[in-house]
């Protein structure tokens, strides 16, 4: 590819202090990845591999120790302005939804649109209506999160992130907290988003989603990217023993 990557990660390292003078935990080790506009990058790997940490570094939820992250030409550093810009451009969907429980669906979606994007009430209403249609829950606009099923809550959370009109969407195990019968309704929304050309970084255990909607697989283990392949190639013929072992377990 010749165009500039929208996310550029170089030599990223991140450690956590160990509990009580125990040696520190290496969560992300020497990660270098470029992600291009419209790619759907699926991050997989065993528990504790550093998938979440890598994802959380991308919007500054976690500070990294060394290396660099550049998103849409903005370096993620300690300049407050840069960080804010990146937070606006990068949407995130959490495993536990994290909807604001005291706000209705409408208010959940509208809050950042009004306060951060500074849209008018009218525009905000339009954006909200459009997104709820997209995620398929137009009739719940005045419900509180507790009145929704898990799948509906997660779809609202996706709509809330999309309302900021981000350039990149991060998903951290977006379906792991859901009852089995609700997983597909959320995955469908994510697949549609991928089809629409959204740049996505998705941490998931759903290999079906990876095959169907993914364009690239990052296989992580012990903080490192062990394999970075096209989806088709990865599933046909994983290079590394660790990937093979992992695949045989999850499929």
């Amino acid at each position: 590819m010749t165009s500039k990557p929208i996310i550029s990660i170089t030599d990223l390292n991140k450690t956590f202090p160990g509990p009580d003078k125990a040696p520190e935990v290496i969560a992300v080790k020497d990660v270098t990845v470029d992600i291009y506009q419209g790619e759907v990058v699926v991050v997989i790997g065993p528990s504790g591999a550093g998938k979440s940490t890598l994802l959380r570094c991308l919007n500054g939820l976690e500070d990294f120790d060394s290396g660099s992250i550049i998103i849409d030409n903005i370096p993620l550093n300690h300049h407050h302005k840069n960080r804010l810009e990146i937070r606006k451009e990068v949407g995130m969907v959490f495993q536990s939804f994290n909807l604001f429980p005291h706000m209705t669906v409408r208010e959940n979606i509208g809050l950042a649109v009004r306060r951060v994007r500074k849209k008018s009430v009218l525009e905000c209403e339009k954006i909200t209506a459009g997104l709820l249609e997209k995620v398929g829950i137009t009739d719940k606009i005045d419900s509180y999160p507790s009145q929704l099923s898990g799948g509906q809550q997660q779809r609202v959370a996706i709509a809330r992130a999309l309302a900021m009109n981000p350039k990149v969407m991060l998903f951290d195990e977006a379906t792991s907290a859901l009852d089995p019968e609700m997983i597909s309704e959320v995955l469908d929304v994510m697949k549609n988003l991928a089809k629409d050309g959204m740049t996505m970084v998705v941490v998931t255990h759903e290999m079906g989603f990876a095959r169907e909607a993914g364009s690239r697989i990052l296989f992580m283990d012990n903080g490192e990217i062990v394999e970075d392949r096209k989806v088709e190639d990865f599933f046909l013929d994983p290079n590394e023993d660790r990937s093979k072992a992992f695949l045989s377990k999850v499929i």
């Binding site: 937070r87 990068v90 959490f94 994290n98 950042a112 900021m164």
Partner: peptide
Amino acid sequence: IQKGQFEASYALGLSSTDKYRFVILPQ
């Protein structure tokens, strides 16, 4: 208050003041 409430506010780009004013303190 669950950590996720702070993280979601952060990820949405809310300022620190807005985070407390609209999300955290009402709860």
